[in-house]
C-alpha cells in the first residue's frame, strides 16, 4: 500500500512532465488543438499496470497541476473534458478486451480531441469549430497510434515489475 502511494507520485509527476515536454515541442500545423498527447502514455500505462481507479486519479491530478502550471483557467476546461472523455472511452475499450493497447490509445486520442471540441463549442458559443472535427479525428488516430505503440512496449516491460 505504501508502495502504491509512491507509484501514484511517480506516474503523476511523469505525466505532468510529459505535458511540459509537449508544450515546448512546436506543432508545425496551422490547426489548433493538435497535440502529441504524450501524457496519455502515462495514463495508458497506469490503466494497464495499476488499474482503472488509479489511472483516473492520476489523470485528474495531471489535469489540475498542468493547468496550474502551464495552461490557465480556460486550458483547464479543455484538458479536463479531453482527459475525462478519453478516460471513459479507454476504460470501456480496455474492458471489452477486444483490442490491444494501440486500439485503446487510438480511441483515447480521438475522444480526447472530441471532448476538447465540445468545450470549444461551449466556450466560444458557436459552431465554427465543428469543421475541425474530421481533422482532429485523423490527428487523434495518428497520435493515438504512435502513443499506443510506445505504451504497449512500456507495459510489456513494466507489467511484471509493479
Amino acid at each position: 500500500m505504501r508502495k502504491k502511494v509512491a507509484y501514484y507520485g511517480i506516474f503523476a509527476a511523469l505525466s505532468i512532465l510529459m505535458g511540459y515536454v509537449e508544450a515546448i515541442i512546436p506543432v508545425p500545423l496551422p490547426v489548433p488543438g493538435i497535440k502529441l498527447g504524450l501524457s496519455n502514455v502515462i495514463v495508458l500505462l497506469a490503466l494497464y499496470v495499476m488499474g482503472t481507479k488509479e489511472a483516473f486519479y492520476i489523470s485528474i491530478i495531471r489535469v489540475f497541476i498542468s493547468a496550474l502550471l502551464f495552461r490557465g483557467f480556460l486550458g483547464f476546461w479543455y484538458s479536463m473534458a479531453g482527459a475525462f472523455l478519453s478516460y471513459i472511452v479507454m476504460v470501456l475499450a480496455m474492458k471489452s478486451d477486444k483490442m490491444s493497447t494501440i486500439g485503446v490509445s487510438v480511441l483515447g486520442g480521438i475522444f480526447h480531441n472530441l471532448g476538447q471540441i465540445a468545450v470549444a463549442i461551449i466556450i466560444l458559443g458557436r459552431t465554427v469549430v465543428v469543421y475541425l472535427v474530421p481533422v482532429l479525428m485523423v490527428s487523434g488516430v495518428a497520435t493515438g497510434f504512435a502513443i499506443g505503440v510506445v505504451a504497449s512496449y512500456c507495459t510489456k516491460y513494466l507489467q511484471n515489475r509493479i
Binding site: M99, S100, G103, P134, V135, M137, V138, G140, V141, F145
Partner: peptide, 13 residues
C-alpha cells in the same frame, strides 16, 4: 479490432 477502430475512425472523419 485495432485495425477496425482505426479504419472506422478514418472513414467517419
Amino acid at each position: 479490432w485495432d485495425v477496425v477502430v482505426v479504419l472506422v475512425a478514418l472513414a467517419v472523419a
